[in-house]
Structure formats: structure tokens, C-alpha cells
Simulated scan of single mutants.
Amino acid sequence: MPYPKGHKLKVRNKIVESAAQAFRANGIHDVSVPFIMKGAGLTHGGFYAHFDNKDQLIAEACRYAIGDTIELLQKVADEERQNPKIYAVIDYYLSAYHRDKTEMGCILPALSAEISRSSDEVRQVFTRELERMIAFISNLADIDASRAGALFSNMVGSLVLARSVVDPELSDNLLSAGKQHAKELVNP
């Protein structure tokens, strides 16, 4: 009996979602294809029916994860009624919740260090997705791309450091300082 129309695409999407979640939480190097496939509820033998190699999956997972993050941040902005909408995005992005939910968070801080050592294919996709995120920030904050890049770099750096330390008070202070500085970049 043949699979229903669209089955292969649904399976592929499950694999990409599983990979995005795994990469966000564990990075690229420590995540195997069998681990990703198990997360999608599949056996690893079917991987090559959907992808040529792991790099192709990494690239697709980056695209998916950035789209997912932009969609989430847009919802956060849309729910804001008083402050500039970018402030709500900054507050969410640099929140304890986002810091602690790495498997659901932005993939950019999770993978940036590893991406620099990845293939050109992966780095090109990562670059385009970073540009897409900066354009989102630029449009939302109504600032030029250069300031949006500085703003987003501040946000990513603050989140990376807050996730990296074992001292909860220092971590919270890094998030707080990052929020304050990010808001100053919006309205100098």
C-alpha cells in the first residue's frame, strides 16, 4: 500500500524539527544522525532517503529554527501594547526562560562557535539566516541594519554568557545588563 500524498515531506519535516531541537540543546558535534532520527520517531536507516548528508540537515535545521524563532519573537512583539515592541523582544530573548530552555531557544547562540568550523554550505545558510534575523530586528526596532546587528550581537553575547556560567546570580546579572544595554542601543 503506497504512502499518502505528502508523507515524505511530513517525515522530512519531523527530522528537521528533531534536528533543530537536538542542535539547540546539544550543539552539532555531539548529535548523531541516529539520535536525530530517534527523536523523530524513526530508524536511522531512513535518513539518506531524505538528506544527502548531515550538513544538508544542519542547513535545513538552521533555516527552520530561525524561522521558528522569528515567528515566536513576532508573537511576543504583537502582544506588546505599551513599550516599543522591540523592548518586549529584548526582554523575552534575554529572559531566564529563554536562557534555560535551550532546546526551544534561538539556534544562533547555540551554534555560532561550531558553525565557524562547518562546511561552506552550512556557513552560507547560517549567514543568510543571521541576516534574516538582523533584518527582523531592524524592521521591528525601526533602526538601520548596522545598529540592528550591534543590538542582536549584544543580545546573543549576553545570552551565551548567561548560559555559560554556573553562578545563577551572575547569570541573571548578565541577562539584566544585556537588556539594559540592548535597549540603550535602540534609543541612544
Score class of each variant (00 low, 15 high):
20 A>G: 06
135 A>G: 01
32 S>E: 06
159 L>Y: 09
17 E>L: 00
157 G>Q: 02
187 N>E: 14
29 H>Y: 10
112 S>T: 14
69 T>I: 08
13 N>I: 09
62 C>V: 15
183 K>R: 11
148 A>K: 06
150 A>W: 03
132 R>G: 03
137 I>H: 00
1 M>K: 06
12 R>E: 13
51 F>K: 06
76 V>L: 00
182 A>Y: 03
142 D>N: 12
81 R>W: 12
24 R>S: 13
40 A>R: 03
49 A>R: 15
145 A>H: 14
163 R>A: 09
74 Q>Y: 01
144 D>A: 04
44 H>Q: 09
64 Y>Q: 06
26 N>A: 05
144 D>W: 08
97 Y>I: 13
92 Y>K: 15
55 D>F: 06
73 L>Q: 10
73 L>V: 05
21 Q>P: 01
69 T>E: 10
159 L>D: 08
98 H>N: 12
159 L>K: 07
95 S>N: 06
78 D>W: 06
116 S>V: 15
21 Q>I: 01
9 L>C: 01
150 A>P: 00
31 V>I: 09
9 L>K: 15
160 V>L: 08
9 L>W: 03
57 L>F: 06
145 A>F: 11
26 N>H: 13
67 G>N: 15
108 L>G: 04
47 F>W: 03
55 D>G: 11
87 Y>Q: 12
91 D>Y: 04
169 E>L: 11
35 F>E: 15
84 P>K: 10
80 E>F: 12
163 R>N: 08
15 I>C: 02
92 Y>D: 12
158 S>T: 12
175 L>M: 04
115 I>L: 10
57 L>S: 05
101 K>F: 06
186 V>F: 11
60 E>Y: 10
24 R>I: 10
181 H>T: 12
69 T>K: 09
